[in-house]
Every structure is written in structure tokens, then in C-alpha cells.
Design a protein around this nucleic acid. Structure first.
Length: 563
RNA sequence: UCCGGCGUCGUCUAAUGGCAGGACAGCGGAUUUUGGUUCCGCUUAUUGGGGUUCGAAUCCCUACGCCGGAACCA
């Protein structure tokens, strides 16, 4: 029997980021202060990969006394950023169970301070205005194998550069006419150091600053300083920024800051059968492959929430996958395990039939009306229950009947007897088919001496089926979700994950549920016994319930069957 | 061909010069009015080669493999 207490947070794995932080605290670096930040660009919804970063950054504040974590929107590219995303991101972080405690920042709040630094660097001869075209700049930057070539504008005087920069800001030049570049090293083997662009002219409405600016700072220039302005000590980002660290440090070297932030890189999450590229996820939404960012098939937090995942399950998953520098693919079954583990401990059990098959009990009197007691939590009957109305006509799941049963079949088949959970034993006498040969109804008999499920004579049956009474049951639309992609690594073969979409990722069925479920509120989670975990979708209306299957139960019978 | 990073069970991850451990997955078994849960058990790993050392997954050298990098994106 299941004695599992309500979900407990599992032990966190040790990880190298936490080790660095703890060492820095121990050695008194930054006067013992620890500040991290989670810096999303508001250009899409957060997904399970972001959850890993959130759990790391905010989780550090729970592991290290006095540590804090900021939420900072990295909104330096107005072309792609929107307020909708700012709101959704905050909602998702809160839902996940974390709080930035008012430490909410925007890179765009620093535009004035960043610009001041740009002027300072320009004045000091560490930055210059380049008037080459985009193509010329790209060409001049060289390649993996070819060193860069200096721009013909690289030696403009500080005064001329400052004048041009001010006029850039003032809007005197068209988009693309000039950029501000850091003067570093065009021959560096690290291409990020080959005079990176600091500002570009871009006449685009910004979601917060509106039209106040026509020049916008680039990530590399803005990020480290934004960290420094806030007092961030440990700036955790993903592996693809490793090559940017020398540049991060170079910018910080030009202005004294205490504490001085340190960039630390870790491997972002990859999940099998899952796409976690924001660009690709946006494509799914824009191409209407899914119903929206919160489609329950999406790996977004909004999607997982609507699917019925709990924040506890996602946190437990993140704690369990660890943090390292190895790029890896986590098996999606680990996520599924975390979800089942949490849902198993918290969900009440109920009965519902996904694909109803009519069962008529020929020896059950028309006017008889039994009802059977059933606990909501079979493993803790003290938590209450309900009565299941019974009758002459019932529904069982089509999957629980086989006219010619395979080896090892415990369920119903002609001439065999099974238990209806909490009710009684029934035996299949006859199969009724339509003109196409499809089974449309089963004629059965019940054993009146087996009320509650145990026969008087003590005979055993192998199978126990879920059921509902036709007359009393309530109808529901049930949405069954499968993996969005049919391959373990979507896009691996063709280069485009769209090619590996699972066309059957959503199946909608007309189910019948036990009557007590008719009033289940939106968001309610439950287990349909023998079937899976479900939650009530916001699309539900009075009398028209919509259920999402969060995840099926483990099914060792189905797993063993030949495909 | 350049720069940076990474190589531990099928997968993810521990070990910080001293018994290669855990989780998931898989496979058995027990219990079970959910083919669920729970419990018990089992299989499986240090990329190769050299070196240092009483002792190496760990340090050094070397080879190989994988990932990232050539936006006025982040």
C-alpha cells in the first residue's frame, strides 16, 4: 500500500555553481554578498529549460543565507520584445514558486547610464563610430580562420567620435548609417573581441521606452554593466556565452565596480522528444501547429501548467537533473516520472470511461438502483469518499474488452468474469455487433452476491475494471496528449524539427465520468483510476466539462504487448 | 584549418588522489479490488594510449570524439 506522505522536496544535488558561490562566501569575496539574476528577454514564453535556470538562480538564495536573486528583463532589442511576454514571464516564475521580492529590473531602465559609459569609453579612445555598411563590418571581422581587418574609420579622433555618437543618439542619421564599436583587437582569435558593436541605430518602438531612443545597446555591452549596476555577484548563463566571457570582463575592466560580477556558464537543458528553442516554439504558435503558447503539448511553463503539471513536480525534476557543463539530453521519462510521483501523492481517485462501451446486465432488474461506497483516496480511507450509482446499463472502456483475448489478458472477454471496481463481479455472456461487425454492446450478467466486489464463495478474478452507470454518468470532452514530436531528437535528421512533428499528438474523445465529477472546478487535478492523471481545462463550461490528460499511468501490460 | 568548452552505466548525475554511488529507464519477484502504488532484487559506466604516484575517473602529456562560436540577436 502507498504510504507516501505529501510530496517532499528532494535533496538538491551538489553542483559546481553552488560550489563557486560557497567558496566565494567562505573567502569573503564581495564582502560575502551573493546576488544572482534571471535575465529573460521578453520575446516569448518561458519553458522547462528556463525553469532549470530559475531553479538554479533563485534556488541559490535558499541554499546561501542572505543571497538574493533579481528578475531582470533583457530588453535591448525592441524589434522582438512585447509587454505580453513581460507579464507572462512574471506569472510563470511566480507559479513555479519563486519570488524576486520586488527586485524587478529592466535593462531598458539603464539606457541612460549605459549611454554615459559609451560616451566615457569614446572619450577615452576605447570606442569609435564606424560608418561602414553591415556587410563591410562583417567582412572586416574575418572568420574562424582569418584575422579581422581594421576599419578605415577606426582612427577617428575622440572628439569626432563623440560628436558622431551624440548625433546618432539625436537621430541625425538613418538606421544602419553608423554603429559604435569597442576598440579592442581585430586580430583576436576570439571573434567576440574583434571590435564588437556596442550600439546600433534602430528606429523601433520599445515596449517600455517608447520612441525615446533610436540607438539601442547590444547584449555584450549592456549585460555585464546591467549586472554591475544591480550588484550582481554571480552572473549565471548558458554555455554558448563562454566565448563572450573575455568581452564581458573587458567591458567591466573599463569601469570600476564593487562588487564586480563574475560570469559562470552551465549547460542548458535539452529534453528528448522536445523542442526547446524559443524560435521554434514561436513557429509552432505562429503556424498554428498548436493552439497557443499555453497549448498543453508545449514545453512552456504555461503549457505544462495547463496540461496539469505541478510546480512541485517541475522543481523536483530540476533538482534531480543537476547542473553541469556537459551538454546532454535528459530523457523526458525523468520529467514524466517526477510528474507521476507528485500527482500520485496528491490526486484523488475517480472513475471515468474514455471510450465507452455499453454493458447491459441482463439479470439486473430494470427498476433496481444500487450505489456503492468508494473512497477518494483508497490508501487513506479517512479522507472521505462518495457513492457510485449503479444500474442495469453501464459503460466500460472499449480497451477493457477483447473478443479474442491475447495471452495474459485479465480483462473482459466472452465467457469470462471480471470485477467492476467497488461494485460487483460481471460475466460476459454475449457480444452484440453492428452490420459492420463492430462490437456495440456487451450482454452480461452480474453476481448479486458480490456486492462491493468480493463474491460470497471467495472465487478470484484477475481483472478489475473501472466503469460508470450510463444513466448517472456525466459527459466530458477529454483531450489526450501525446509527444509533440515522434523522434527522440527532433530535427536531427532533416535539420528541421517541424519534419518530425507527431501528427497524432492530440486526440479528443467523448468520455463518460462518474457523476461526482460534474462539478469539478477548473484546474482541479485527479486520477482516473487505471487510466491516468487529468485536470480540468479552462475551456470547461457548466455541464460541459473538458479534461486534459496530464499523463497516463505507467502501463506494464501495454509495454509488454507486441506493437 | 582557428578559438573556447566537454568526455563516468542506455540516459542524467555523484566522487575533488583512497571501496566508482544515486536517480530514471530496463529486467525479475512480493503485495495489491488501479496490469497503478509500495517493497525487494538484478543487469550496466570512468573515450584510447602513455606518464606521475604506494594508490588516478580525478594530476600531466598525447590521440580521438562531441558541442559551441564567423547578427547592427540574446
Amino acid at each position: 500500500m502507498n504510504k507516501t506522505p505529501p510530496t517532499a522536496e528532494p535533496e538538491k544535488l551538489p553542483n559546481f555553481v553552488l560550489e563557486i558561490v560557497e567558496r566565494d562566501v567562505a573567502t569573503g569575496k564581495n564582502d560575502g554578498k551573493v546576488m544572482t539574476r534571471f535575465p529573460p528577454e521578453p520575446n516569448g514564453y518561458l519553458h522547462i529549460g528556463h525553469a532549470k535556470s530559475i531553479c538554479l538562480n533563485f534556488g541559490l538564495t535558499q541554499a546561501v543565507p542572505g543571497a538574493v536573486c533579481n528578475l531582470r528583463f533583457d530588453d535591448t532589442n525592441p524589434s522582438v520584445e512585447e509587454d505580453e511576454y513581460v507579464r507572462a514571464i512574471q506569472e510563470d516564475i511566480r507559479w513555479l514558486g519563486f519570488d524576486w521580492n520586488g527586485r524587478l529590473y529592466f535593462a531598458s531602465d539603464y539606457f541612460e547610464k549605459l549611454y554615459a559609459i559609451a560616451e566615457k569609453l569614446t572619450l577615452e579612445g576605447k570606442a569609435y563610430v564606424d560608418s561602414q555598411s553591415l556587410e563591410e563590418i562583417r567582412e572586416g571581422r574575418g572568420s574562424f580562420y582569418k584575422p579581422g581587418r581594421v576599419s578605415p574609420f577606426r582612427d577617428r579622433s575622440a572628439a569626432e567620435n563623440l560628436d558622431l555618437l551624440r548625433r546618432m543618439r539625436a537621430g541625425e542619421f538613418p538606421d544602419g548609417a553608423h554603429v559604435l564599436r569597442a576598440k579592442i583587437d581585430m586580430e583576436s582569435p576570439n571573434q567576440n573581441m574583434r571590435d564588437p558593436v556596442m550600439y546600433r541605430i534602430k528606429r523601433e518602438h520599445h515596449h517600455r521606452t517608447g520612441d525615446a531612443w533610436c540607438i539601442y545597446p547590444m547584449y555584450d555591452f549592456a549585460h555585464g554593466y546591467s549586472d554591475a549596476f544591480e550588484g550582481v555577484t554571480h552572473s549565471v548563463c548558458s554555455l554558448e556565452f563562454e566565448n563572450h566571457r573575455p568581452l564581458y570582463d573587458w567591458f567591466l575592466d573599463q569601469v570600476p565596480f564593487h562588487p564586480r560580477p563574475q560570469q559562470i556558464e552551465f549547460a542548458r537543458l535539452n529534453l528528448t522528444y522536445t523542442e526547446l528553442s524559443k524560435r521554434k516554439l514561436r513557429q509552432l504558435v505562429e503556424n498554428k501547429v498548436v493552439a497557443g503558447w499555453d497549448d498543453p503539448r508545449m514545453p512552456t511553463l504555461a503549457g505544462l501548467r495547463r496540461r496539469g503539471f505541478t510546480p512541485e513536480a517541475i522543481r523536483a525534476f530540476c533538482d534531480r537533473i543537476g547542473v553541469s557543463k556537459r551538454n546532454s539530453f535528459v530523457d523526458v521519462s525523468l520529467l514524466e516520472h517526477a510528474v507521476r510521483e507528485d500527482l500520485n501523492a496528491r490526486c484523488r481517485r475517480a472513475m471515468g470511461v474514455l471510450r465507452p462501451l455499453r454493458v447491459v446486465l441482463e439479470n439486473y432488474p430494470e427498476d433496481q438502483a444500487d450505489a456503492f461506497e468508494a473512497p477518494w483516496f483508497p490508501e487513506d480511507v479517512s479522507r472521505g469518499g462518495r457513492r457510485l450509482p449503479f444500474g442495469r446499463v453501464l459503460f466500460i472502456d472499449r480497451e477493457d474488452f477483447a473478443e479474442t483475448p491475447p495471452k495474459g489478458w485479465f480483462r473482459l472477454s466472452p465467457g469470462t468474469e471480471v470485477r467492476l471496481r467497488y461494485a460487483c463481479l460481471i460475466k460476459c455472456e454475449r457480444v452484440i455487433k453492428d452490420t459492420l461487425g463492430q462490437v456495440v454492446e456487451l450482454r452480461c450478467t452480474w453476481d448479486p452476491e458480490s456486492r462491493g466486489g468480493n463474491p460470497k464463495d471467495g472465487r478470484k478474478v484477475k481483472g478489475t475494471l473501472h466503469w460508470v452507470s450510463e444513466k448517472h454518468s456525466t459527459a466530458a470532452e477529454v483531450r489526450l496528449y501525446d509527444r509533440l514530436y515522434k523522434t527522440e531528437h527532433p530535427g536531427e535528421e532533416s535539420g528541421d524539427s517541424m519534419a518530425d512533428l507527431n501528427g497524432a499528438s492530440l486526440e479528443t474523445v467523448s468520455a463518460r465520468l462518474e457523476p461526482a465529477l460534474a462539478s469539478a472546478p477548473v484546474g482541479d487535478r485527479l486520477q482516473l483510476e487505471r487510466v491516468g492523471y487529468f485536470c480540468v481545462d479552462p475551456d470547461s463550461r457548466q455541464g460541459a466539462l473538458v479534461l486534459n490528460r496530464t499523463i497516463g499511468l505507467k502501463d506494464s501490460w501495454a509495454a509488454k504487448q507486441p506493437k
